[in-house]
Write a protein that binds this DNA or RNA. Structure first.
Length: 606
RNA sequence: GCGUUUGUAGCUCAGUGGAUAGAGCAUCUGCCUUCUAAGCAGAGGGUCGCAGGUUCAAGUCUUGCCAGACGCACCA
């Protein structure tokens, strides 16, 4: 409908003023202004006229050869407001939704293009927490949004399975583990490994406290920076625990059999644990990369950069990248004097590898905002090293999550554990359902609790735009009233319930929509029409909150429509029922499709 | 210190340079013998951090200041 109007205006402008221009059509903030509006500011530069004059002239021109679907054109100052013939407006939207069903909302803006979305990418030394949940849900939603816009999407997960962090857990397990396994202890693998990682950190802290006491240093009176420096320079080189973990890392790098064996064993525990969490969240990946395979990558590329003069070598043998003065503090080291790679070198190699594997047009990394500078350097490095595809690389940065008591800290165990959180949400959903005395069987109850609990969690996280930090309020997150996932799911369930009760009404024949002229009818219609634009907008802006907002508005519009005293559909005669049921069916489809983009299921009953 | 970023209702957050700044929660008032009340209708609540600038128009762009967050590793 919007396209039809836009091309009509475009043609008219071309005839009247002899210029080609894009048309930006808006939906008026106030319904009484009309169904669509055309702010004429957008043409004033091009036509060198005042917006109000343009609006006047254009109105005359448009009215001269107005199509029958436009009922009325009004100009209010610089705005041209259009009222669309209701019957054709409703029919067109309803027809589109019925034709496209679960594909309604999809567009072709990404047709023939591919995108890789790398997300999750956890370290394999501890279980996933709320921060990972945000990452996973965001990455998954962004993937689905791209799919809806026609892109071919590859979801990738780069597991950081190697390094000092896992060696810490390995050492603690060797020292204190007594061969404990997930089977022997009944503890989920990632939690078991995490337990030993925490044990390591605890022992290290004890050792540090003792060291400081022995040295008789008064840390409390030191500046924070000096304190860190002291610990780094004085304590760390003398730490038995750190030395032991480093030894394990060296043995791992040397390929020592026992160490590799233990590393494989513990990583396997963690992977299995992660898989369970991913499954619970309904998340899957098309491709796994492992840091243990990629950590040496990038070296050749850097050496080529040295030949071409992009990089330079210092006297000690280390290799550095020259960065532009503007925007970058210092040059960046790429290879240590012993020739080993640093973090960014691996990322350079991985970028090349990903492209070799998939030749995608876009490559998105879903990583927290604390790594923004890292990605700026990385993309600049890729550009300087001649990797043309750096243009398609994008760091989807998301903000931190605070708890009411402050920042989450994994080392201190001040985190919201992902598995526990999921269980809590599902439990809460179950309580809510039970309290409503619904006639569900045990199986239905647990299936619906699962859908609702996860819906609440996912919507809670995705309602925020990615870049904002937000405070996780356990009470609010678990609330099912107001702007929440369950509210939207509930609306869907209500529609399903209604449809079950009037299942004999046939909507396939031509429907007369002329009876739908209330505020509520029109609001809902307009929202349903907008859905494809919302999906595209959310995708372009990498912003799930746009869709979250929209879904709430749509559910809310339906509930207003539904609760009108004179609108009791069940009691109406068939001819009056039809257009209203058509609206309800359409709304159900849109809610279903929209929630699906968030990985949220739409229950038939709840 | 430098860079990036945030500051919108009591709280948590939306808000393409465009029409009278919105939502949820919380508070208050109504509505279940009724298509699922996880709902609906309504009320109160704002110096859009502060001060300048740009223009027909600024919560939105810009400069300065104030306050917070993140970053500025041969960690990842």
């Amino acid at each position: 409908m919007r396209n039809k109007l836009a091309s009509f205006i475009k043609d008219t402008i071309k005839n009247k003023f002899d210029v080609d221009t894009d048309i930006n059509i808006e939906i008026p903030a106030l319904a009484e202004h009309g169904d669509f509006s055309l702010p004429c500011f957008q043409f004033s530069k091009l036509l060198k006229k005042a917006p109000v004059t343009i609006a006047n002239d254009l109105k005359v021109a448009l009215e001269e050869n107005k199509n029958d679907f436009i009922q009325e054109i009004n100009n209010v100052g610089p705005y041209l407001n259009f009222r669309i013939d209701k019957n054709s407006y409703f029919s067109e939207v309803f027809k589109q939704i019925m034709d496209q069903k679960e594909n309604y909302g999809n567009t072709e803006s990404g047709k023939d293009k591919s995108v890789m979305v790398e997300f999750s990418s956890p370290n394999t030394n501890k279980p996933l927490h709320l921060g990972h949940v945000r990452n996973n849900l965001l990455g998954d939603a962004i993937s689905k949004l791209h799919q809806a816009c026609g892109y071919k999407v590859i979801k990738a997960n780069l597991l950081n399975d190697r390094g000092i962090h896992i060696c810490k857990a390995m050492f603690a397990w060797k020292e204190f583990g007594n061969n404990e396994t997930p089977e022997s202890s009944g503890i989920k693998g990632d939690h078991l490994v995490g337990k030993y990682y925490v044990t390591f950190e605890k022992k290290l802290k004890e050792e540090q406290d003792k060291f400081i006491q022995d040295k008789n240093v008064d840390l409390a009176s030191m500046e924070e920076r000096d304190r860190d420096k002291f610990i780094e320079e004085e304590f760390y080189p003398n730490s038995y625990y750190l030395k032991s973990a480093r030894e394990l890392l060296l043995k791992w790098e040397a390929g020592e059999l026992d160490t590799i064996e233990l590393w494989k064993k513990m990583n396997a525990w963690v992977f299995k644990g992660f898989q369970e969490t991913y499954k619970a969240l309904g998340i899957s990946f098309d491709k796994y990369y492992y840091e243990s395979h990629t950590y040496k990558l990038g070296k050749d590329i850097v050496l080529k950069g040295l030949e071409s003069g992009v990089c330079y070598q210092k006297e000690d043998g280390s290799i550095w990248l020259t960065l532009p003065k503007k925007g970058f503090g210092n040059d960046k080291i790429l290879l240590r004097k012993d020739g080993t790679s640093v973090y960014i070198t691996q990322d350079i190699g991985t970028a090349f590898l990903k492209y070799q594997d998939y030749k995608m047009n876009k490559s998105i990394n879903v990583v927290g905002s604390e790594q923004e500078y890292h990605f700026q350097v990385l993309f600049k490095a890729l550009e300087l090293l001649g990797f043309e595809e750096y243009r398609g690389c994008y760091h989807l940065s998301y903000g931190m999550i605070y708890l009411p008591e402050g920042k989450m800290k994994s080392r201190e165990g001040k985190v919201v554990d992902a598995d526990e959180l999921i269980i809590e949400m599902v439990e809460k959903a179950k309580e809510e359902i039970i309290s409503r005395n619904r006639p569900f069987t045990g199986e239905e109850l647990s299936s619906i609790s699962n859908i609702v609990g996860l819906g609440a969690l996912k919507y809670y996280v995705l309602q925020y735009s990615a870049k904002t930090d937000f405070t996780f309020d356990p009470k609010a997150s678990i609330d099912f009233n107001g702007k929440t996932g369950p509210y939207i799911q509930y609306t869907h369930a209500r529609i399903c319930s209604l449809l079950r009760q009037v299942s004999d009404v046939d909507l396939s024949e031509k429907i007369d929509f002329s009876g739908l002229n209330s505020q509520e009818d029109n609001n809902l219609l307009k929202l349903l029409e907008q859905f494809p634009y919302i999906v595209e907008k959310a995708c372009i802006n990498y912003n799930t909150s746009i869709l979250a907002e929209y879904l709430y508005d749509t559910a809310s519009a339906f509930n207003s429509f539904y609760s009108r005293a004179d609108n009791r559909i069940k009691d109406m005669d068939t001819e009056r029922q039809k257009p209203r049921l058509a609206l309800a069916v359409s709304c159900k489809q849109v809610i279903n499709n929209g929630l699906a983009l968030f990985g949220i299921s739409s229950p038939e009953q709840m």
